[in-house]
Design a protein around this nucleic acid. Structure first.
Lengths: 166, 166
DNA sequence: CGTTTATTGAAATATTATTGCGCGCGACTG
DNA sequence: CAGTCGCGCGCAATAATATTTCAATAAACG
């Protein structure tokens, strides 16, 4: 794995920034056990190498009036690469679709969507998603409640793994 | 909606920090059109009010050797609240499970999981998830590739909406 | 209207980010 | 092995940013 290119300090940096993306560099340096300048240099390197894709505030959608979250399983008629790409591009253009993943199995894509209310989503569903070219089937499930939401990497698992391989 | 309590500047702040969680406060202030001190106060207020749930670096799981991502649909035997909670707690304890959402419909939960490789995931699947108390059925789908991944709020939709209601 | 309350922005101060540079350590070489 | 090269560290100095303080302004209210 590419993680081999990283030493323990780099991984600690990633873990800390994943947990708190606004941590100051001095605090980060203190936690990983080096001084501020090399710490900052490492962060920049990790960013440029693509280990860090960006930093984002986690904004509570429900608090902002997006009370509906839906997972949609989408099946297409054609799975030719050109058609897959076309569908993916449409997902990128739909603001209500926040995530789009291509899957194996009977379903081709899973979409995570948000909407201010059910009628807005239903409108999107019938007018846009189901109606879109090449879409064969759509099954949706409303999110009743969220129990865990920590996208990213389980660094404890990673460290266990590296320790075992060492 | 609770977004009514926020003015346009607050919403702009949220949008900017969602897009770039490490933006400096002076840059943020410049973009939203006020000076730095009140801008910082607004950010703190938004954090305390729960509009901002935290800040996180988006770490690339695949780059770190987590090459497998899986969605798992889980059905339980009992949907009594106590049993639902128990299952949710288990999900929180499993490091490979990064997200857990309760759904309506035939499936009770959808889980987003990561693993270093397929065998690690299959081991988790058979030894932990499927074997867990009260779990009736599990269907999994491997993520072939990701096409969009922007969790959060579509602020353009929100602004449209507010403009229409005004 | 006068008062209260909330929010602002300028200025001052404290922290933090960033750059420049010399040092030490390990690896490669003759 | 000694010499030297290259990498990465930390110290110190500087630039930028965050944060507090405070007086002024504008809206809200009686």
């Amino acid at each position: 794995m590419a993680a081999t290119r990283l030493d323990q300090i780099d991984r600690k940096i990633l873990a800390e920034l994943q947990a708190d993306g606004r941590m100051t560099n001095v605090e980060l340096a203190k936690r990983v056990g080096i001084s501020a300048p090399p710490c900052l240099r490492r962060v920049r390197t990790l960013e440029e190498a693509g280990y860090i894709r960006g930093y984002h505030a986690k904004v509570d959608a429900r608090e902002l009036g997006f009370e509906v979250q839906v997972f949609a399983m989408v099946g297409l008629q054609s799975q030719a690469e050109a058609d897959l790409s076309k569908f993916e591009q449409r997902c990128r253009d739909w603001p209500l679709v926040r995530e789009c993943h291509m899957l194996n199995g009977e379903v081709d894509f899973i979409l995570k969507c948000v909407a201010p209310d059910l009628s807005t989503f239903q409108n999107f569903l019938t007018e846009e998603l189901t109606a879109a070219e090449n879409v064969a089937s759509v099954k949706t499930s409303l999110v009743i409640r969220g129990a865990k939401d920590e996208p990213g990497v389980p660094f404890d698992v990673l460290e266990d793994r590296l320790a075992r391989n060492a």
